[in-house]
């Protein structure tokens, strides 16, 4: 019975969202996913009817920049957080003395418990400006004008934007991935690792070829857990992203917005739309977020399934 509750809650929330979003889905159509304008229209003026749905004149909802911003910031967060988390987990299990390891573990767990609004505030007031003043200019000045890297060129802005968002998100998901990965590494039996050492493999080869593959599916699961958090993180990103609605940033530093941050930042003004169409469009935005999260999870499951065939069976005794 208890197992049904989470699944039931998920289905119920998606159904409610879909019902709420219904009119918006009908009117906005594919433009919602591809368009780059998010306009409430004149909420005090004339009301238009499209397919029998009332909405303010001039309203138009295209969420592509928000969807892109969500994927971009989450991708940056993963690129930063995964290596750091794996490195930290590896150091905690394999390298550091036990007493230091347990202190650091405690620190990581504390970080996981810091409310995101605090991290957001710190990001907006301290970290962002600091990076924009002392770090970003150095990076930007040294980037050659070649594809991909030119994305890191000037202007660097004032600290609100995509890269700061990605860094803040990384900070928030490192504890999740690192503590899960630490538990996984601790489960890798000593015997295969010793086998690698006895064969004359370097420590790095043992890690790369034996320890990591041994828990590969678990690590992918941990990463998806972090990605889920990054995709859905709201308040901190609303504070450090610049909370734009209609712009995809031209470089990695620029201000932008994400789906989750837009929902919270647009809720107040959406209530001013007497037709309820703005609320319906926000519900559609939420629906998109749940679908993206669901797709990411399914993709991860698929990858786990594909790569699992060579890794060790769970519970192999050593």
């Amino acid at each position: 019975m208890a197992a049904v509750i989470p699944a039931g809650a998920l289905i119920a929330s998606v159904v409610v969202l879909a019902t709420k979003a219904g009119p918006a889905v009908r009117v906005n159509g594919a433009h919602f996913l591809t368009g780059s304008d998010w306009k409430l229209g004149n909420t005090y003026g004339a009301i238009q009817h499209t397919d029998g749905v009332a909405h303010p004149l001039g309203s138009s909802y295209g969420a592509w920049p928000l969807i892109a911003g969500t994927l971009q910031s989450s991708a940056i967060a993963l690129i930063i957080a995964v290596p750091i988390s794996l490195g930290a987990a590896f150091a905690l299990t394999e390298r550091l003395p036990r007493w230091l390891s347990s202190i650091l573990r405690f620190g990581i767990e504390l970080l996981a418990g810091v409310p995101s609004v605090l991290i957001g505030l710190w990001g907006a007031l301290t970290l962002g400006p600091l990076l924009a003043r002392d770090v970003y200019p150095i990076v930007a000045d040294h980037m050659p004008n070649v594809p991909v890297l030119s994305y890191f060129k000037n202007p660097v802005g004032h600290g609100e934007g995509l890269l700061t968002s990605g860094i803040v998100l990384a900070l928030m998901i490192v504890p999740i991935i690192a503590s899960t990965a630490r538990n996984l590494f601790a489960q890798v039996p000593a015997l295969p690792k010793e086998g690698g050492e006895a064969l004359g493999l370097t420590d790095w080869e043992v890690t790369r070829k034996i320890t990591l593959p041994w828990v590969r599916s678990g690590l992918i699961g941990a990463t998806v857990l972090g990605l889920g958090r990054a995709l859905g993180e709201t308040i901190a990103i609303a504070m450090v992203s610049g909370a734009l609605l209609n712009t995809i940033t031209p470089n990695v530093y620029g201000t932008m917005g994400t789906v989750a941050a837009a929902i919270v930042s647009q809720l107040d003004s959406a209530f001013t739309d007497g037709t309820g169409f703005a609320i319906a469009s926000l519900a559609e935005l939420a629906l998109v977020l749940s679908i993206v999260s669901l797709l990411v999870n399914m993709l991860a499951r698929f990858i786990v399934h594909r790569t699992d065939s060579l890794s060790a069976p769970v519970g192999v005794g050593f």
């Binding site: 015997l191 295969p192 064969l199 034996i210 593959p213 041994w214």
Partner: peptide, 25 residues
């Protein structure tokens, strides 16, 4: 360790294919 190899108490294959296990070293 290449010159002085070792076989352990219990089989300890690496999490890779049979062929890759043989040629890992």
């Amino acid at each position: 360790r290449r010159r002085v190899g070792m076989l352990f108490q219990r089989p300890n294959p690496f999490p890779m294919s049979i062929r890759d296990n043989v040629v890992a070293g």
